[in-house]
């Protein structure tokens, strides 16, 4: 699933595809193996449900959270903390980067290109086929093209995060795997894994990454 040589883990994809959940879970997964893990929230798109909302939990786990200063936490401003570049380059840290959705979110990667290109990285493109504008092979390929162009980044792996929230069934996850297998054939981008809720005993054709869902509603 994760090759062990990667220093930088980049999650990109369409808006609401599950990048934040995967970034958080990847950081937790890596932290179990290594002392110095950082997660950088460079999401300039979402104003609700972001990595930074889990800051205190991550600090308890001793994962370094790189995000906007406390006083700007709820600001409607596209802030990129300056230390992101440093953590991307710092050889002592494994760094996970939660990128904002769509091409507008990926545009930030262009500005970090000088740092990103210098390290061994894995770029994951997250797909949930039950999200708008992501349901078909053609739509997904067009999304990959746009995001990689605007973010000036080569997509190295596809991730199947297909789910319908609390109502996800095994068949839904399978549909995601099938559509993404087609995408993979056409684009030659390999499929890395399927991510499923930690309570699901799903087995499919891909490695399964069990994840804890963080984004909860207040009831």
């Amino acid at each position: 699933m994760f090759d062990g040589k990667t220093k930088l883990y980049l999650y990109v994809g369409m808006f609401g595809s599950g990048k934040t959940e995967l970034s958080l879970n990847t950081a937790i997964f890596l932290r179990k193996k290594q002392t110095h893990v950082a997660i950088a929230d460079i999401d300039i798109i979402s104003q609700y449900f972001r990595s930074r909302d889990e800051k205190s939990f991550l600090e308890e786990m001793q994962i370094k959270m790189i995000t906007v200063p406390e006083r700007y936490m709820h600001a409607d401003l596209p802030i990129i903390p300056p230390e992101v570049g440093g953590y991307i380059s710092n050889p002592d840290f494994l760094t996970v980067v939660d990128v904002g959705g769509n091409e507008d979110g990926a545009v930030v990667l262009g500005s970090l290109k000088n740092f990103i290109d210098k390290v061994k990285k894995s770029t994951f493109f997250v797909v949930n086929v039950f999200r708008p504008f992501s349901a078909t092979k053609a739509e997904i390929i067009s999304n990959i093209d746009r995001i990689s162009q605007i973010g000036k980044i080569k997509i190295e792996y596809l991730v199947n995060n297909s789910n319908v929230g609390s109502e996800t069934k095994f068949d839904d996850i399978k549909i995601g795997e099938e559509i993404l297998t087609e995408v993979s054939k056409e684009t030659s981008i390999p499929l890395a894994f399927t991510s499923v809720d930690q309570d699901m005993d799903y087995e499919g054709n891909l490695p399964v990454f069990k994840i804890k869902r963080f984004m909860k509603n207040p009831w």
Binding site: F130, R131, V164
Partner: peptide, 14 residues
Amino acid sequence: MKMLMKGTEAIAEA
């Protein structure tokens, strides 16, 4: 078939 949607998206599509 159900979709996983944001409120704003669900309202727009509806």
